[in-house]
Design a protein around this nucleic acid. Sequence first.
RNA 1: GUGGCUGUAGCUCAGCUGGCAGAGCACUCGGCUGUGACCCGGGUUGUCGUGGGUUCAAACCCCAUCAGCCACCCCA
Length: 418
Amino acid sequence: MEKIQKIKGFADILPPLSQVYDHMERTAKGIFALYGYREVRLPILERTELFCRSIGEETDVVQKEMYTFPDRKGRSLTMRPEATAGVMRAYIENNLQAQEELTKLYTAGPMFRYERPQKGRMRQFHQINVEAVGSPSPLLDAEILFMLAHFLQELGIPDLNIEVNSLGCPDCRPSYHEALHEYFRGFDTGTLCDDCLRRKLTNPLRVLDCKVPACKELTKTAPLIADYQCPACREHFQAVLAALDARKMPYVLAPRLVRGLDYYVRTTFEVTSGKIGAQSSVAGGGRYDGLISSLGGPDLPGVGFACGMERLALLLGEPEPVRPDFHLVALGAEALPAGLLLAQELRAAGLGGECALTARSAKSQMRLADRLKPRYCLILGESELASGTVVVKNLGLGTQETVVRSGLATFLRNSDNQ
RNA sequence: GUGGCUGUAGCUCAGCUGGCAGAGCACUCGGCUGUGACCCGGGUUGUCGUGGGUUCAAACCCCAUCAGCCACCCCA
């Protein structure tokens, strides 16, 4: 029979890597709880229109990266390419604004984008996502950045760069776009790279982010967003930075930082690492004040970020294997079922480990025990069955002693052999 | 969507100008009636990614296709 293989860009997350994912989610849960965030679990499939309206019709994500298909009744569905849209849909649909003034939510799970896979980029990837809805305060922007930094620090990831920018708002951004347009108009073939010639028309902000030296040189004298922001946006951004400074949080101002999702306004940020290849962005987010009303909800502001779990996993490395408390070696036909009963007693007492299930030589069972690195190897044979004892062997030290069965759980629990 | 590199044992990889499919690790059995690691000896493991083509003969050359990796692009 022909084997069926997984879809391109999709991955099986097996042990021990699955432990890393579990660790990330547990750490997130613990840290986020300190800030008042609660978990939501939302559908992976949504109506296509949700993403067109939130992410933006003209973005790359919507234009060429979505898994979109009709259901059995011909309605267009899309596998979520990001989490914020779905969280906002759920917020509106469940009238969460009626429950509390500020709603703090987080979620973790798979996202789907049809892109060419490479290091740190899969078609099914996983994000931890945080959203805070209901407050326009710049202090909330700062708090969410504190929380993101706190989370990454708790995971123990060094050498991350936190970049911060303000994109302005619908009131002031058009004038900046206009200015950029004006600035780039003069540059033609030979001055800007081919990509930027396209970008200066579609998304002039992206030209500022180009890595080609010639383009970089030109952008040095390009107009700055800061000079075009309205007083309200300027004040907001200054308040965010003041809060970050007061806590002495390390960050860099990135006036060229652009986001590929249309809903972002004012504060935006990105966390990058130089150690994981070209896809260096580990987390990214910002404020999205007009998003909820554009989806038919109340006119409430929001802030959030997404954290890429595959990229975090690249930085975390292999986890320590968990050491079982015991491994039980059973010698002889009668010792096998007796060994299972004994193992079950120990598990009931909160001790973890495995026992032999099939009759094999002492040598092969001991070899297996050695691989599993249990705190103790327990040996149960005919003579131990007869005397109601168990041989307890410390594989690290090579020492062993005979312990009465009734006292075994206590003996194992009190031992300091880790 | 574009470009480059790569697919050979469970894993890591050799395999020359086309001529019997290899090594190390792992696994397994034994040396040691019921004691692991270290040591010694034996043993198992393959549609050479897949499908075509060239050839007396293809893991090797050609075409196609699938998958992986890296980069562009884009983003977490």
